[in-house]
Nucleic acid binder design. Sequence first.
RNA 1: GGGGUUGUAGUUCAGAUCGGUAAGAACGCCGGCCUGUCACGUCGGAGGUCGCGGGUUCAAGUCCCGUCAACCCCGCCA
Length: 609
Amino acid sequence: MKRTHTCGELREQDIGQEAVLFGWVDGYRDKGGCIFVDLRDRDGVTQLVFDLQVNEGPLKVARTLRLEWVIGVRGRVRDRGTMRNPRMPTGAIEILVDDITVFNQAETPPFVVQDDVKASEELRLQFRYLDLRRPTLQKVLRTRHRTNQVVRNYFDGQGFLELETPFMVKYTPGGARNFVVPSRIQPGKFYALAESPQLYKQLFMVAGMDRYFQIVKCFRDEDLRLDRQPEFTQIDMEMSFVTQDDIFRVIEGLIFRIWKEVLDVDLLEAYPSGRFPQMPFYESMARFGNDKPDLRFGLEHTDLTGLVIDHRGGGIPLLQSLADKFTSGRYRQDLPQEIVKAMRIPAEHKLSRKEVDRLEDFVKGMGAQGMARAKVAPEGGWTQSPFAKVVTPAFRDAVNAATGASPGDLLLFQIGKEPVVQTVMANLRLHLGKKFGLIPEFGSGGQWRFLWVVAPPLFEWDEENQVWAAAHHAFTRPYDEDVPLLETDPGMVRCYRYDLVLNGVELGGGSVRLHDSKVQAAVFKAMGLRDDDAREKFGFLLDALKYGAPPHGGIALGMDRLCMLVSGRESLRDVIPFPKTQRGSCLMTDAPTPIDPALLEDVRIVTTV
RNA sequence: GGGGUUGUAGUUCAGAUCGGUAAGAACGCCGGCCUGUCACGUCGGAGGUCGCGGGUUCAAGUCCCGUCAACCCCGCCA
């Protein structure tokens, strides 16, 4: 028998044809005198029919079939007449089987292979090859394939070269923790698995490749999350002789193409200019508490720190002590920065006291000390609030005005160290957005809100080592007008770094690189890096930059996250064929495992557990 | 490193505030019947170390301690 059709393609117009189909038994209904079998392959499901009157031999075989057996059948495409199934694409027809071959029997699967899967993810990961038979996951992988093809076509059409970079690279401290690979030939030395092709793609620019892209695996030994895997895929690119805006245009073009060709969505309807909006980093932090705002709904934050200082705490002891930390309008630098933020919950979103209590537990789980609240009364006063009795009317009115609070609204406050307040408020906003039904629990809800977050600070203060550390990497170009601040106020230096955000998910990020050696030296100096330190860490790149590096920049997009959003899945694990668990295990293969002691000896490794 | 949720039949779950009369359902599986099903129907049957270890108790699925695994979050990570 030679296959003539897939299980998803036969239609009304094929009636009367002979067809040979191969596939898996998706279901069977034994009526005694006739048996119906659903045959499944990656393209769909076709109903087979065995009839005692017509084909007794095959019917006897069909009676023995069980779920997930692999069979082939030859038969005639027949009209189902009045018994058509409108819910099946092939529902108009069935195959009246003349001949059947059982290629392979199957043990009873640990869970039933069906879209409406009930088995736990743990079990499905253990039998991933069965899980992947489900039509939804087949569709996801097909979408991933399509996306890959669009990316390659697009970049090729734009003059990019698809070039490969090593996975086994030199270990460089800083940034994400590396997976390490011991060298057998050079005992005691190690390679690192590449966190990204970052340095190599810059070397491609120095080498004059002009435009590079790659769909590439990256490895990071950090704790996992719903949207983080230890090995993941990036769409990586770099361009020479460009500005930030040139890079934006290329990526916007790519995204438009993917949405059109994979989803059949024309983003021009939402973005008629073909461009995505941009928002400065500081604005995003102030309004949303993070650098990846979900713009599909409101519940924005208001930063009240300035008001609190102006009103010397507004009669509220907790805020008074915070205001006291400011001297002559400037925060005391010997203390960690503390801020005050509020979120206005409009009256239309009812929250019982009990629900607000639960919200307080929710934020405490993220490190918040508590969560003050205030209900706005008809004349603007605050009730149901720990502040109600002490707040000065002037401060209260100022807060109401700043947050836009009107009677019936609820105000939620966070007071404390800046990073905690921001994290808590950002998560609180998302939590409430879902709770109020403003955004779906997961998925896009058909809304695609893209945003470039731009102009973040070049440095972050490293509390542990008491130095300024590169927030992205040390080769990001600062804003020209901020270059003087490198010496006076490094924390205020903005840079040409950017993140592409979609519906609150960071799709990717990149930067325009620093190619001016004078500015580069100033950046290293601000970081407290001596010349030889820098040389130790980045020597080969510094050398390369000396030999005629073009101005260049690039970006990397998270392929897995992109596929997750495009496919409307809630988890990265759903769009990676063989993902790992939160502790980095593969439940199917049981990796990681101990290895043969002889192999350890070969690479001169002694373990201590 | 920290916080939280979950773990009972092959699978998904119930088994409540009160420790004993509770080892249960559905799907799947096995056998019988059925010629138009497509969540087929119907009759019957098998299937359990209640994650694992310890403790309290006359008695533990249920209470306590520990441990393992999966999941979610903080830290970490672009």
